[in-house]
Amino acid sequence: MEPEPQPSERREESSLAEGGVTGPVPVDILTADASHYRSESLWTKSIRKFARDPMGIAALVIVSVFFAIACGVWAGWIGQNWSSLQADGYTGMSREHWFGTNINGQDIYARTIQGTKTAFEVGLIVAVLSTVIGGILGAVAGYFDRTIVDEVIMWLYGCLDAIPFYLFVAAVAFALRDQPYAMHVAMIATFWSSTCRIVRGEVIKIKSLEYVQAAKALGVGSMTIIFRHVIPNTFHILLVQGTIAFVSAIKSEVILTYLGLGVKHGVSWGTMLSESTFEVSAGIFNNFIAASSFLFLLVIAFNLFADALQDALDPKKVTAS
């Protein structure tokens, strides 16, 4: 799906400098202000574009705050007291327990903070691995399109797409009994396919471009072409797909944990929300509000960040502006 030009872009002044980077630049413009062109790569252009998007910047700031919290937990500075029984169950909000305590008297604030770490753990593992696998297989399939390699890769993702996600996780959980990483494995095994599909389509376009043809004519090996010349040119897709996978992973974690298929050791927003399903009917909302507001804030920030990233990185828009 080709994103339509945003109205904000049409208003942008299309300066001569921006139009001249990819095409041949007239000599008189070059001499007029040569320093301006050298720094202008597709990446710097994207960054400039992103910096002009207030929504994107706001989203990035929120995501960074969450990431800082997760790093704080990893470093052992905050949220370490999440499992000790510190008070009576269901105490309200107080100075010691900012968000109150849960049924066992564990501090909900510490658990929410610890849950941030769990969310980033799940999100990062799944996003990175599924994007790497999808990117490599997609590039290989696209480069060798209409060969047996391509057919096998397409067949593989066709099969995985046919099995409903939650049921696939259940099936993987059956196969990997008592493995805490069954959920991660299942998510990676399903999330790579959309990245693979998009990268494959892009690589089919890229491989007919001159620089790939030139590399081929020089006798560069197929794998070298794929890894050195083709994949770096799909990074903008991988970045966006990675953010989408991250969001899907932390949203799925909550549902899977509620269904008993997700996080089993430690605490996550999913375990907190599962606990809260027994509490809300009794009018106790501490767990629910703490976990759901953190989850919502992180997910919406990431969604907006992904949107802004997509707008900034789309090469068609970059050259069109």
Binding site: K251, V254, L273, S292, V299
Partner: peptide, 29 residues
């Protein structure tokens, strides 16, 4: 497209996408 109504609907869509299924179920109940 590009107008106020469009932006409103799309913001609503992003908010809707960002709320976990489980949270929707709990809140609606």
């Amino acid at each position: 497209r590009g107008g106020f109504v469009d932006k409103g609907i799309m913001v609503f869509a992003v908010v809707g996408m960002s709320i976990s299924f489980l949270i929707v179920v709990i809140v609606f109940q």
